[in-house]
């Protein structure tokens, strides 16, 4: 079963005085149950919009989204939300509330609320401290703790690790890692910190300017693709249809290509997700391949 299915989702925001116009163009992908999917893309690519559409915060203009088997515009979705944990990309708790207050609210909101996990996730944070006086790291941690503490089956996290130091980020990744130890739990996580996603994800989806460029299994993709470093004539040996992007300098060429197309003694290195993202975005190559 798929934990999340997005089918032909379309959403447009009209251009106004305050905001740029923007479009999500017919995005489709699905997240198999029990897997972690990383959502990547440049700023303003539509990641947050997509996540808002999935959670029902914004309404799509077309297409359909099925979360844990329930369409998110249906009435039953209210109950499905019990099995969802959501972390938005901005602080979203009233500044006067303390962690204790949040605990008391959530205890009444979720049927499966477990305050032991909640306080354990918060670690050393003083539970009587007002949210407004939290540090940035603590502010980010609170919604994550809420999302982890009601036995959710699907976590949706919009940049949970942005602006945090490596130690806290590692703790959060650890929490996600622990969370998915159980078979039926899935995670959709967006981030700019690709090294985090490389550690945590099974699938990577890349959105650019409102379009889904690829949605692939991470390790498979990393095994399939290589960074080639060579001279121009050597590159010409490689089948053009197997090259995704090229970056030229005066002293040679770097290109992202399929491993099986690279022959002979051409020097190649393991590609990272960052490479794949950059070359897919920038390496406009005529007749080049797509992932």
């Amino acid at each position: 079963m798929n934990a999340l299915e997005v089918k032909n989702i379309y959403k447009s925001y009209k251009k106004t005085k305050r905001a740029e116009g923007f479009e999500l163009k017919n995005i489709s992908f699905s997240l198999p149950s029990g897997c972690v999917m990383g959502l990547i893309g440049e700023n303003g690519a539509g990641k947050s919009t997509l996540i808002k559409l999935i959670c029902g915060i914004a309404r799509a203009d077309g297409g359909e989204i099925t979360v844990l088997g329930t369409e998110n515009t249906s009435r039953k979705f209210t109950f499905t939300k019990r099995d969802m944990g959501v972390v938005l990309d901005y602080p979203c708790f009233p500044t006067k509330f303390t962690a204790n207050d949040i605990n008391r609210i959530m205890r009444r909101a979720y049927t499966d609320w477990n305050e032991n996990i909640f306080f354990k996730c918060l670690g050393t944070i003083d539970t009587d401290l007002k949210y407004g006086s939290y540090s940035k790291g603590m502010k980010a941690l609170l919604p994550i703790a809420v999302a982890m503490s009601h036995n959710a089956k699907l976590l949706i996290m919009d940049e949970p690790t942005s602006g945090l130091d490596p130690i806290v980020r590692d703790e959060i990744l650890d929490m996600i890692n622990e969370f998915t130890r159980e078979e039926n739990r899935s995670v959709l996580i967006s981030s700019h910190i690709l090294s985090d996603l490389e550690k945590a994800c099974d699938y990577i989806a890349y959105i650019s300017r409102g379009e889904l460029k690829f949605c692939e299994e991470k390790d498979d993709m990393l095994d399939k693709l290589v960074i080639v470093k060579c001279g121009e004539d050597e590159l010409n040996v490689i089948d053009r249809r197997k090259v995704i992007g090229v970056r030229k300098s005066d002293f040679g060429i770097e290109a992202l290509a399929y491993r099986n197309a690279v022959t002979g003694g051409i020097h190649c290195e393991k590609a990272t997700i960052e490479d794949i993202m950059i070359y897919t975005a920038k390496g406009d190559l005529e007749g080049g391949a797509r992932i």
Binding site: V36, N177, E178, T180, E182, K199, A200, D202, E217, D219
Partner: peptide
């Protein structure tokens, strides 16, 4: 499978 993947912090699919 899951225990190994989570322990090594690698993909379950892999």
């Amino acid at each position: 499978i899951r225990g190994l993947a989570k322990g090594l912090r690698i993909s379950v699919i892999t």
